[in-house]
Structures are given as structure tokens and as C-alpha cells.
Design a protein around this nucleic acid. Sequence first.
DNA 1: GTCTATAAGAAGATAGAC
DNA 2: GTCTATCTTCTTATAGAC
Lengths: 210, 210
Amino acid sequence: MMEKKDTKQIILDEALSLFAVNGYEGVTVADIANAVGIKAPSLYKHYMSKQDIFDAILTEMEERYKGQVTPMRINGMDANKDMGLFINISEEQLIEMGKGLFLYFLHDEYALKFRRMLTIEQYRNQKLSTLYAKQYIGAPLSYQGMLFGFLSGAGVMKQENPQIMALHFYAPMYLMLTLCDCHPEREDEVLSTLEQHIRQFNHLYQSKGD
Amino acid sequence: MMEKKDTKQIILDEALSLFAVNGYEGVTVADIANAVGIKAPSLYKHYMSKQDIFDAILTEMEERYKGQVTPMRINGMDANKDMGLFINISEEQLIEMGKGLFLYFLHDEYALKFRRMLTIEQYRNQKLSTLYAKQYIGAPLSYQGMLFGFLSGAGVMKQENPQIMALHFYAPMYLMLTLCDCHPEREDEVLSTLEQHIRQFNHLYQSKGD
DNA sequence: GTCTATAAGAAGATAGAC
DNA sequence: GTCTATCTTCTTATAGAC
């Protein structure tokens, strides 16, 4: 039983792939059907309309991220748990962590495509723009702000505004992510820059300067 | 003569406004004509096709930016000239400059709409993705890297990697710009964060720490 | 659940009057 | 230069056979 993947799910996957490049209006139901390997009318046995497919993608993504690993979190929701990991973290470990999170965002098929789709569609839909701002800006900054607040309080890092520290840590990753989205061929170069960024960040913010 | 704005130019302006929200495929020639205040067939007296209108927008923007103020530059192409301004710049002046450049990007009608259009269309068109990467990432980082290299060499700022310094200065502005694009109501909050960012950046990187 | 056939409307573009 | 009328193709969606 369940030998092959559910057609209903395949439709979502292929539709997301197409929406993530061409946007909602740039994709026809025939395009989606063709990617799935069926004819357009067959789609309507699985979904009521093109808009219904789009909405189903949103719903699935909401489920997928609910209470789960949102951008740049380690132990999910709880920065307190992560504190134990960070309080004696080495620079090399910090770099590995940053790279790992960065590459998750860049290489996870769904994370990448969904981010691109939101990027394209955000201006037409207030719900999507709010989701984008929360998912890719608000949540990571808030979480990391908490983390750097702890590290600052514990004396591991300098007594600077933790919100701005989070901005200084995350914004370069955000910029490089949007760069790699369209230029995957620059990934090696960007990963090298990411490493230098974290090294210099750590150097600037650690309590005992060299 | 030339009492009213050229219809040909109005078409470009209105088309850009629409493309910047809905993307190329999300806009019909009837939409554009309606925004201009004429009927769709009349458009074809000015442009050969819908694609022709889109291309004309690109061409105009290329002209507009050619050898001119690209993101975050002060005296255009020449960082050497800007050096004189920066070498004894106060923190307050640095903040004013950062805010000024930020607000130019956010409030200049064309700059804003063109950036949004590129954001939407970049995944479908390699020329556009290259332009986006150059205009909003490569150029500002390159220019500021040069500037911080000078300031570092002059002893005004610490001896750190100037490319990474530029990333630390510009990436937060880039992030906040993409945030404000969809959430103009958060502009005050973001401007306050921008100020704190530049203050903390200056504090971290200036040669004589407090 | 998938297909072919087809309806109903939208979209890009042209013709020709004014 | 703008309009109405129209052409053609594309697009969403439905009907009904298999």
C-alpha cells in the first residue's frame, strides 16, 4: 500500500516549483498538469481550482513550520536550552552552526522554493507579506536577540544592544541567502564570506578582545 | 509646447507601478491602458507589444543609473573624493548619511518600484537576476568596501577586513529596506533601528574603543 | 482518476473609422 | 492618437466516456 507518492501531493510539489519561479499568474494549470504528468482536467479531481492549489501549498507550509525549526533556531522555541550550547562555544563551532543553518535554508527543497514564492507574491497579498516578514526577518532576529542577550548577560559577549547584535549577525546571512537564491554558482564564494563574517563578528563582540 | 507629459512616458510610469506589484504576467495591457486613461489598442501606437513596454522600462532604468548615484555612493563613482568627507566624520553625520541614503531608496518613486519589479521578476530572467545582484548587493558592497579600506588604512577605523566591514554596514540596511518595501507602516521603527545599527557599528569599528 | 471534447471568458494584438 | 469592432489564441473549468 502507498507504493507511489500521492498524486495530490505531487501536484503541490510541482505547483510550488513552478510558482517559485514564475509566480502565480505566470503558471497555468496546464503547466502544473504537465509537470505532474497528467492532463489539466485531471487536476480538478484533486483540487477545486488553481487558487485552491496555491492555498493548499500555504496550508502545508504553515503546518510544516508550526512550532518547528524556524529560521536560525537551534532547539526550536527555547533559547534557554540553546544557551548551554553557546556559553562555551568555540569560534569554529559558531561557524559550523552558521553554515549549517545557512545551507539548510539554501538546500532544503521546500524551504528554498517557498521562500522564493513568498518573495514573488508578497506585494500582492498582505497575508503573504506579513508571513514573509515574520518568517525571514522578525523570527530570526527575535530569537537571536534573545540568545545574544543571554550571552551578553553571562559575560561571554560585550554589553551591547542584543537586538542590534542579532541584526549584525543575521542580516549578512539574509543578504547572502537572497544572493544565492538566484546565483547558486556563487555558493562557494558566499560560504567563504559567511565564514569570514562570523569570524569577524565573533572577534568584534566577544568580551575579551585580543 | 510639451504642455502635458508625454503619453509614451506615462505608459512607462503606470506600467512600472503595476509590474512592481503584480509582476509581468499579473498585469494585462488593459490594466496598463486603464491606468493611463486610454483604451488598450491605443497603447500599440506607442509600443509594439507588452514585452516592448517592459523592455523600455529596463532601458530607461539603465540610462537613469548609468554612471550615476548607485546604492550608497556619495560622490558617484569615486570613493577617493568621499574619503575627504569621511575621514573626520562624526557619528551623527554618519547616521544622517545612512538615513538619507536609506530614505532615498525607500521614497524615490522609481527606485522603489524598480527594485520591487526586479525582486519579483529576477527568478524568470537571468539578465534581471544579474542586474539585481549588481545593483543592490555587488555595487554597494564593493563601493563601501573601498571606503572602509581607506578609513582602515588611514587609522580612523580598525584593521579588519574591509569587505566584511562593508557587509556589516550594508546588510542591515538591505534587510530593513526589504522589510519596509512591504511594510511602510514600520518605517519609523526601522529608522530608529537603523540609527542604533550605525551607532553600534561605529562604536565597534572605530580605532579608539571607549 | 485519467482522458477527450468543449464551453466560456480573458488576453494580446490588428483593422480601420474618426 | 484614440476609439470600436474583431480576430486568434490561451486559460480556467466542466461534461461525460472509459
